[in-house]
């Protein structure tokens, strides 16, 4: 088993403003570990994580794949700084961009992303809550997902096909309430991407899934 990245540099104050790795994060790490041989063997040249928060996931990926290009975005400026520090702490060279989803990279990264990661704000809330949480760049933006918990995820899903390289893979964290079969169906019918469940786990009240998508 691979070690969880060292997060000992994050202070209590950091974790008041940035989502602290929890069961959903650890399930995503476990899914990446399931795919260890593929991820390492396919020699990805561009990895991109959307909403990297503490930076735990990309640091973990960096310890699987080794030296390559890692980009992370987050809408929360505190999260951007934490991601940068977590990369340093774990010897993974991460390029952090303060921004929404992949917007400033979409033009140039079209068909170039080999590993795309997204642990979205998936908790069903009111739609108003999402708007405020995102535009303020606060910690609430890490979980408030609006109607069905899918408001932000749906925007990202529409971008994935354009970003993935021919052999690229997209890993998504989802909750049972997000309608996992519906997400897989949407991706196939709207975007001709094939998806499957890599792992699922019950954690407290949450039934969590890790989905993996690639071109047909």
């Amino acid at each position: 088993m691979l070690p969880t990245p060292d997060l000992s540099h994050l202070t209590k104050k950091d974790l008041e403003e940035v989502y602290e790795p929890a069961e959903d994060t650890f399930l995503l790490l476990d899914a990446l570990e399931v795919d260890y041989d593929y991820l390492k063997g396919s020699k990805p040249s561009i990895c991109l994580e959307i909403g990297s928060g503490s930076g735990c996931v990309t640091s973990f990926l960096g310890n699987i794949i080794g030296s390559t290009a890692y980009f992370c975005t987050d809408i929360n400026p505190h999260a951007c700084r934490c991601t940068q520090r977590t990369g340093k702490q774990n010897n993974v060279n991460i390029q952090v961009i303060h921004g929404s989803l992949a917007s400033p990279l979409e033009l140039r990264l079209a068909s170039k992303v080999d590993v795309l990661l997204f642990n979205p704000p998936y908790v069903p809330t009111s739609d108003d809550e999402v708007g405020h949480a995102q535009s303020d760049g606060k910690i609430e933006g890490a979980w408030a997902g609006g109607s069905g918990g899918m408001q932000i995820t749906n925007v990202m899903l529409s971008k994935v096909k354009n970003l993935l390289s021919p052999s690229g893979r997209f890993y998504l964290v989802a909750l049972k309430e997000n309608n996992v079969p519906g997400i897989i169906k949407l991706m196939r019918e709207m975007y001709t991407l094939t998806g499957e469940i890599v792992l699922q786990r019950h954690a407290g009240r949450e039934h969590l899934f890790i989905l993996r998508f690639s071109h047909l």
């Binding site: 809408i75 400026p77 700084r81 940068q84 961009i97 303060h98 921004g99 929404s100 917007s103 535009s135």
Partner: peptide
């Protein structure tokens, strides 16, 4: 601090 701020205001999106 080495981080590019690529955020846009609501009306610029």
């Amino acid at each position: 601090n080495g981080i590019p701020n690529m955020l846009l205001a609501e009306h610029e999106i």
